[in-house]
Simulated scan of single mutants.
Amino acid sequence: MDEKLYYQDQYLANFSTEVIEQGKDEAGKWYAILKETAFYPTGGGQPCDTGYIDGVKVYDVEERDGEIFHYLETPLPTELTMVDCQLDWDRRYDHMQQHSGQHILSAAFEDLLGYRTVSFHLGKETLTIDLDIAELSEKEAKVAEEKANQIVAEGRKIETIWVNPDELKKYRLRKQVSVTQNIRLVVIPEFDYNGCGGTHPRTTAETGPIKILGWEKQRKKIRVEFICGGRVLAHLHEKHIILQQLSGLLNAPQGELVHVAERLLAGNKNLEKAIEEANDRLLYYEGKELIEVHPEQMVTVVFQNRSVQELQKLARSVVAIAEEKVVVLLAENGERLQVVCARGEKVETNMKQLIGDILSHIHGKGGGSESFAQGGGAAVLSGENLITTLKEKKVLQS
């Protein structure tokens, strides 16, 4: 049986075959080539199968130059000629459900709305199709989803047929095939005819429910994210558990969770605003205290672990109360020194120039205006040592 066709018997989870070749590729990865294989290689938007060959883990499968490489965690015993192979069936069946769901949903979009699918990707948790349109409405997505699930519920056969190029004319294909021989069509009679080498279940019923999760614009296309089959149930179960937990935490039935959350968020915003106003008042009184403790014109203070935002507010409080003051506030924050400089209305000292002189001693960067500036640098000196150095160099005046 042709190696490249054998994997398309999608229900063959266990099989035996011959080892044709094994070794290491150019990247040093162990591989085996089999006479026949049921392992699907990565391609056509569908990830590869994984599983075991004689108990050795197959973690990747690729088609290269017409051969299918099965990448192994360890080499097979060299004396082996016949091997027993086992697919990870849960993974295979999941991929079958998702891939057939993609066929069905793409066909629904095209038949009902004329929206053509131009690409497809099957991920670990969700899958996507890119539609050749610029906008998609909620109503359009709902119509396509309902049609897709109707086809699922009808349990239509999913057939595979092999045709030559001349026979293609008999079928209304959704897109042109990319091969000229061994052309494989996956067909849902009277609904979808599609050239595809991927794996699919026997009927649309085995696809399970199809659920669109959302969509977004991607390079002038619309990317639709959705899930099918077992993934829908897993998604529903996860959301159900979360909703139960939220319902208990908020002491509200599920139908009222949104309203309760909105009230909590509104209350939280009011609380944050009140806390911010209280902090501003505290900083105002802290500023008054600094003025009393530092009667000199230039106020220099070193703090531990205070944010730049707090330093800014505190500096502004000081110069608003005492317009004849210049204030230089430093904060030692781990390996960084943060600096804020401000002047009152009755002072002409240039704060932008001052911050530049200060930051040059700590390899820092910053900026600002003539009345207010800020910056930061490496804590190559302690805050007190930096102030002492700056006073010795007449950068800061007592």
Rank of each mutant, 00 (worst) to 15 (best):
S307M: 04
T50R: 09
G214W: 05
K391H: 11
A331C: 09
G197H: 06
V328H: 02
N251Y: 02
I68V: 13
Y71R: 05
K365G: 05
G356Q: 13
W215C: 04
R64K: 15
Q176P: 15
Q254P: 09
G229I: 03
G155C: 04
Y59I: 07
I151P: 01
T204D: 05
K365S: 03
A322M: 01
K175I: 13
L381A: 06
L12Y: 10
E262M: 00
E324D: 10
V258K: 09
L290G: 05
E323Q: 14
V318K: 04
A107S: 11
E21Q: 12
E21C: 02
E310P: 00
L233F: 11
Q46I: 05
L113W: 03
V339C: 12
L282I: 08
A153Q: 07
L246D: 00
K57I: 12
N194L: 02
I212A: 05
E277G: 08
T128H: 10
S317M: 15
Q245R: 08
A373Y: 00
F120I: 05
Y171R: 01
L87Y: 00
I222M: 14
T128M: 07
F15W: 13
K175H: 13
L213H: 07
E26L: 08
Q10E: 15
K239I: 13
I291M: 01
K273N: 13
E310L: 09
V143Q: 12
V177Q: 04
V308S: 04
V319T: 15
Y115L: 14
F372I: 11
A266C: 09
R202V: 11
E145S: 06
V326I: 10
K325C: 11
A32N: 05
V152M: 03
Q181C: 14
I275S: 10
R281I: 10
D130A: 13
I355V: 13
A315V: 06
V179P: 01
K220Y: 10
S178G: 07
W162T: 14
V224N: 03
G43E: 06
V152W: 01
L249E: 06
L290E: 09
E323A: 11
G334F: 09
H121C: 03
E63H: 07
G123N: 10
H363R: 15
M298V: 05
G368C: 07
L168P: 01
